[in-house]
Design a binder for these strands. Structure first.
Lengths: 340, 340
DNA sequence: TTGAAAGCGTTACCAA
DNA sequence: TTGGTAACGCTTTCAA
């Protein structure tokens, strides 16, 4: 056992050498045929023999060996600690993935749970991706970006609340969402505004900047912002609603539509009139919000399309020096319905 | 340019040879130090020099080279054509990912959009994963399973409606969901049951077996099953509701809770009394369904936990011969509320 | 038209 | 305690 057996001895994985042997040609010829190398002309009978041999052995090329030899990959790494929740985000995700495949990139979502920013960057760098698109679930530091770039990544693109030195940062400021909601409520005359913070882990990345945005918007007007905590279950909502009248609030921005729907129901069950006694506002403009009575006011968020982001990735990979044109990454817009 | 430049010439990616050179030792020594190989004792000063050199150069090992040498990987491939929709599924997904990482596997979601079963299997095999867990978005054929196994995959596990020859198939029969819903409705005396089929692509994988299950359950009782089509928007729901009374139905099973909520609202807007005139039933037991009035009856689905599935993966990898004990993969149970 | 050989970055054996 | 070296699977240049 001087050599690690790659398989349960009886079952060696076929290599191009095996194909060559069976077809009675050299490994070079196998490579030419299987990759349709146009620079070399191989006779039709030889091609057939090679193809048949490959087929018979069930030969599949070894991606690692290939990229090792090539010195680069076409892998775009999408760090995905959690599968993002919510239809908005997952649609964007799917679009991006699809568009990148059309550009002939291999999209790999790599879950780096429980690693901090720099550890994660190192783990990603080991895979030698040609590009990394970080959706902001892991905080990438300038150092982490350096590690990735030095390991050969041509494009490091971050979507998140703030710029990251060295990366192409697309700033997606969640504060705008909170600001939008607060401005809408204030504009309609509400002065004591609760802002719901989900208790669930992982949402902080969005919820905190949304709160900040609301606070900033209120500051300019003298309205009061009151942070509230709730988790995504009926008990928690009921508990919050039970104390509601003591809070002295006339409006609440509830993080997103799902939390808003939950809270609104709890308030209604408590006899709080919506919006007369308390206005309720969500975010994300889910279809379901329109089904409630009163219909839920919300913040509609236009995200950059996956298609456009994929184009950016490709451009930066081809020309890593060029600065990205500034994208209108995210636009938020209040949608008034009946709950506010 | 006889050799592909791996980087923009000025920026070569550091290798272990560079580290060795800088530290004044051999590549072997570098490997020993960086991998904490216990079989060899390296002096503390040497270790320090190596570590410092690695740090200074920003050296990160090359995963492809490593696995090429090792002859195997710890990669578990999760084909993910679409990020799955719905909180149920994504929770399961996250759990699985997390549990596999704890077992020291590298979880890679690989999006193989637009490839058919056997093409996809080939693409996966190129990465030489040690295990593949297919959630059923891509139909894996016995041939595809063969390709994967011959390429070194120790475990090929499928979750889906039916067994796949050669793979460890965990049968997750969506027919049970539809059957459960229909049985519940029939048990409560409804005899003319519509079954909603979403118009959205990709959901067919679930919706068709659910319809089948409902049909089978009805067959035994003489109830009528009527397939209906609707897409996930208000217009489509309104159109369906407008014709509702002509359909002569006294109940509807609406694929899942989201579609059910949408349809129920449209029916209410049309003046159809729920459940007196028409009973409505969903599936998935979403929290939001409890918020409607009347509260939505549903089918609660218990999925196998990601933790357990991860354990199975690990067991099969360690001992590919062993048959998996039969898991109770999915259990469906009707939950009666007010809408039926 | 085909083959021989070098080399990609790593690790592990064996020798010093 | 350390270093030399071969080998993993593949592609590509050069020579025949």
């Amino acid at each position: 056992m001087s050599q690690t057996p790659k398989q349960s001895a009886e079952h060696p994985v076929p290599t191009s050498a095996d194909v060559a042997r069976l077809a009675g040609v050299s490994r070079a010829t196998v490579s030419y045929v299987l990759n349709n190398t146009s620079a070399v002309r191989i006779s039709e009978p030889t091609r057939r023999r090679v193809r048949e041999a490959a087929e018979e052995l069930g030969y599949v090329p070894h991606a690692a060996a290939r990229s090792l030899r090539a010195g680069h990959t076409r892998m775009v790494l999408l760090p995905a600690a959690h599968v993002p929740v919510g239809p908005l985000y997952s649609r964007f995700f799917n679009e991006l993935q699809w568009a990148l495949r059309r550009l002939d990139y291999t999209v790999v979502q790599y879950g780096s749970l429980g690693l901090d920013g720099d550890e994660a960057a190192r783990a990603w760098a080991e895979l030698r991706p040609v590009a990394v698109v970080s959706l902001g679930e892991v905080a990438l530091t300038p150092h982490g970006v350096g590690v990735l770039k030095r390991s050969g990544a041509k494009a490091v693109i971050t979507l998140g609340p703030e710029r990251v030195e060295g990366a192409h940062s697309l700033v997606m400021d969640q504060r705008e969402v909170g600001g939008c909601a607060a401005a809408h409520l204030i504009g309609r005359g509400y002065r004591n505004i609760g802002v719901l913070m989900p208790d669930e882990p992982g949402l902080e990345l969005f919820s905190r900047p949304r709160l900040e945005g609301a606070t900033e918007a209120a500051m300019r007007t003298g309205a009061r912002i009151e942070p509230l905590t709730m988790s995504y279950d009926e008990e928690s909502a009921a508990a919050l609603a039970a104390d509601w009248r003591g809070l002295g609030l006339d409006a609440v921005y509830a993080y997103n539509d799902e939390y808003a729907m939950l809270l609104m129901r709890a308030l209604q069950d408590e006899g709080v009139a919506i919006p007369r006694e308390t206005a309720v506002m969500g975010a994300d403009d889910l279809l379901l919000g329109k089904l409630l009575r009163p219909r839920l006011s919300t913040v509609q968020i236009d995200l950059v399309t996956g298609q456009r982001l994929a184009g950016l990735v490709d451009r930066v990979v081809r020309d890593p020096g060029a600065e990205p044109e500034r994208h209108d990454l995210m636009r938020a817009r209040a949608v008034h319905r009946e709950s506010s």
